[in-house]
Amino acid sequence: MKGARFGKRARPTAGTQAMEVVADGLGVRAGDTWLLRGVDLRVRPGECLVLTGPNGSGKSTLLRLVYGTQEPTEGSITVGGLSPDERDRDFRRRVSVLLDDSDFFAEFTPVQHLELLAGSFGVDLDVDALLTEATLDDRAHVTAGSLSAGQRRRLLLLGATARPFDVLLLDEPERALDTAGKRWLTDVIARATGHGAAVVVATHHPPLLDTADHVLDLAALAPVS
């Protein structure tokens, strides 16, 4: 994973709260059913939290809470000391996310996607190196809609990780990746924490547990009625 040139992460200015993710007594209820309850967590800059548990245990819900697209029923969650709000431009620039509904422009090529990303964030990206490391170099000028499921996943991951960010949220990023792609994913996450980002990953991929600073098994938090 050497040689790729990613966007340089913006340093917080003096007086700016570090982008730490903190939850206290977090709970979400749908009707009479608790999807999550009693969640406490703290992810500091440079740390990775892995969320585990079977489908339906609340992993995606927790990531939506961190990104501010869903409100908690009880408890609190903060990112950088503030309530998360994906509608806020500064928040979106500092928090990068890959969720179930993340998508790409089907008519754009991988090169065009990365060039758009670089222009949007005002950063210099080594597009060729990034695509080579993601093994998309031979598909660089093919429209994204023509890529295989695994290749589309790699492109989405590049979109989330090649840009500047202080917090990275990934929902089952290993989905559709082959063995080499999963190794690449592990390296990408390690590089993100190495650059000082706080990373939260929902995953079923065991090697990510081995490299995590914290693991939260949501199946062990049985919601109380």
Rank of each mutant, 00 (worst) to 15 (best):
A118T: 11
G80C: 05
Q70V: 08
M19P: 03
F91R: 05
S60G: 11
A18Q: 11
T78G: 01
L65E: 01
Q70F: 00
R87D: 08
V66C: 04
D85P: 02
L169N: 03
A220C: 07
S120T: 13
A140E: 06
L99W: 07
E133D: 15
A30Y: 12
T143G: 12
T143M: 09
A4P: 15
E86V: 11
V111R: 14
T161H: 04
L208E: 02
W34S: 11
V79W: 01
P54E: 12
L208G: 04
R183C: 07
T179L: 12
L41C: 14
A118Q: 01
V79P: 01
T73M: 01
P72A: 10
L218F: 02
A162W: 02
F104Y: 15
D101A: 10
L130A: 09
L51I: 07
Q112W: 00
D138R: 12
R191S: 14
L136W: 01
L136H: 05
G7L: 04
F104C: 13
T69M: 03
V39L: 06
F165C: 08
P223M: 10
D103H: 14
V199F: 09
P72S: 11
H204Q: 14
V199I: 11
T143H: 06
K2V: 14
E71H: 01
L216T: 02
V200W: 03
L147C: 14
L209S: 09
Q70G: 00
F105K: 05
G145F: 06
T132E: 15
T179F: 09
R153L: 04
R163D: 06
A14E: 15
V201H: 04
R93V: 10
T13R: 15
D137C: 03
E133K: 10
T211C: 08
T33M: 01
P84G: 05
H113R: 03
W34P: 03
L131P: 05
A176R: 05
V199D: 04
R44S: 12
D100Q: 15
G15P: 07
L82K: 14
G31W: 02
E20V: 12
D210C: 00
D90T: 14
H195P: 00
R183N: 09
A198K: 00
D85G: 06
G58Y: 02
D40E: 13
R89Q: 13
R11D: 12
G196P: 06
H214T: 13
N55G: 15
G75P: 00
L99V: 09
R5Q: 13
D103A: 15
D40W: 06
W34A: 09
V28P: 00
I77V: 15
R183S: 14
A14Q: 12
R191N: 12
D126V: 08
L116I: 11
L62D: 01
R175K: 11
P223G: 11
A18C: 02
L36N: 01
D88P: 01
L185Y: 06
S60W: 00
A162F: 03
E172A: 05
R89D: 13
S60C: 07
P206G: 08
K59V: 09
V123Y: 12
H195S: 13
H113W: 10
P207S: 10
T109I: 13
R64E: 10
A149P: 00
G31I: 09
V22Q: 04
A219F: 08
Q70A: 13
A134R: 04
K59H: 11
G181Y: 00
M1S: 15
T33Q: 10
D101H: 15
P223T: 06
G15K: 08
G46S: 15
G122R: 03
